[in-house]
Amino acid sequence: MKTHLNTLFITTEGTYLAKDGEAVTVRVEKETKLRVPLHNLDGIMCFGRISMSPQLMGACAEANISISFLSPEGRFRAAVVGFSPGNVFLRRQQYRLSDASDACGAISQAIVVGKLANCRAVLLRAARDSTDPNRSERLQAVAGRLAANIIDVRATNDVDRLRGLEGEAAVSYFSAFNDLVNAAPDEFIYTKRSRRPPRDALNALLSLIYALLTHDARSACEASGLDAAVGFLHRDRPGRPGMALDLMEEFRPFLADRLALSLINRRQVTEKGFDYLETGAVKMDDATRKTVLVAYQERKQEVITHPFLGEKTSVGLLIHLQARLMARHLRGDLDGYPPFIWK
Rank of each mutant, 00 (worst) to 15 (best):
G43A: 07
G43L: 13
G43M: 07
I44H: 07
I44Y: 06
M45H: 14
M45P: 01
C46R: 02
C46N: 05
C46Q: 09
F47R: 00
F47I: 00
F47T: 00
G48P: 05
R49H: 09
R49I: 05
I50A: 00
I50C: 04
S51R: 07
S51L: 04
S51W: 06
M52T: 11
M52F: 14
M52H: 14
M52K: 13
S53I: 03
S53W: 03
P54R: 15
Q55F: 13
L56R: 02
L56V: 04
L56K: 01
M57S: 07
M57I: 10
M57Y: 05
M57C: 07
M57Q: 10
M57L: 10
M57V: 10
M57A: 09
G58D: 15
G58Q: 11
G58N: 15
G58H: 13
A59K: 04
A59C: 08
C60E: 11
C60D: 08
C60R: 08
C60T: 07
C60S: 09
A61D: 12
A61T: 14
E62Q: 12
E62S: 15
E62V: 15
A63E: 13
A63I: 13
A63H: 12
A63P: 14
N64Q: 14
N64S: 12
N64F: 15
I65W: 05
I65F: 07
I65M: 03
I65K: 01
I65V: 08
S66N: 03
S66L: 09
S66I: 06
S66E: 09
I67F: 03
S68D: 08
S68Y: 03
S68N: 03
S68P: 06
F69W: 14
F69I: 13
F69D: 10
L70P: 03
L70E: 00
L70G: 03
S71D: 10
S71P: 10
P72Q: 04
P72M: 08
E73Q: 14
E73M: 08
E73I: 04
E73N: 06
R75N: 01
F76L: 01
F76A: 06
F76H: 05
R77D: 09
R77W: 07
R77M: 10
A78S: 11
A78N: 11
A79G: 12
A79F: 06
V80R: 08
V80W: 09
V80C: 11
V80A: 07
V81K: 02
V81C: 09
V81A: 13
G82K: 03
G82P: 00
G82F: 06
G82V: 01
F83T: 11
